[in-house]
Amino acid sequence: MIAQISIFAENRKGAMRKLTDVLGNAGIDIIALVTNDSAEFGIVRMIVSDPALAEKRLAQSGYMVHKDLVMAVDLEDRPGGLNRLLASIDESNTNIDYLYISYDRALSVPIAVIHSGDLEELEQCLKNQGYHVRSTGNFI
């Protein structure tokens, strides 16, 4: 499993830049990122090079931060690759809460980042079907 941080930020001009400024000043690299917004606040989900330090520095800067686990699965880089992964997930006894896509720059491989209520079962199902599920040590 991979550590992911979720940050609650105000939905206003410059908010994202302030958040990335905190991370940049701490020497933390953003590996994957997705944002969801509402009228007043947004959720920024990230996989970063040092999640513990990111959580600490963002909290010190006044952000509400939550750290949890997600799964990172290599995708086939061709049309239908994501659809095949989703079909495999449908065969498991799990549901995904959300999914976003990242990319391994060194290996040129797309990666699906998945949050689910039962990551262990989902991981076993996908490994049994031949998917490469990444761990913290091999995500970046």
Rank of each mutant, 00 (worst) to 15 (best):
L85P: 00
A72C: 09
D74R: 05
D50P: 04
G42I: 10
D21F: 06
A15H: 03
N11T: 14
V44N: 01
D104T: 05
D90K: 12
R45N: 13
V113L: 10
P79H: 10
G62N: 07
N25P: 04
S92M: 04
L23Y: 07
E91F: 06
E121K: 10
L126K: 01
G117E: 10
R105I: 15
A59N: 09
E121P: 04
M71V: 09
R17S: 15
L119W: 00
D104I: 05
I43H: 01
L33N: 00
S38N: 06
L126P: 03
Q60L: 11
V73M: 03
S116G: 13
V70D: 00
K127Y: 04
A112E: 02
D77T: 07
S116Y: 05
V34A: 12
V48N: 00
V109F: 01
S49V: 12
V73W: 01
F8V: 15
R105V: 15
V113A: 04
L58V: 06
G80Q: 04
K67N: 07
D74Q: 08
R105K: 13
L86I: 14
L69C: 08
D118E: 10
A87M: 11
G80I: 08
H115L: 10
G80S: 06
T20Q: 06
L58R: 00
N83S: 12
I111H: 01
S116V: 13
A87D: 13
L82H: 04
P79F: 11
F41T: 14
N93M: 11
K127E: 14
A72P: 01
P79W: 08
L107T: 15
G80C: 07
D90G: 10
A87T: 11
D104N: 14
G24D: 09
L99Y: 01
K67T: 15
A15P: 03
S102E: 03
L19S: 05
G24E: 07
N128T: 10
I89E: 00
L86C: 12
R45T: 15
G130E: 07
G130D: 09
P110D: 02
F41G: 14
I101H: 07
L126I: 05
I47Y: 01
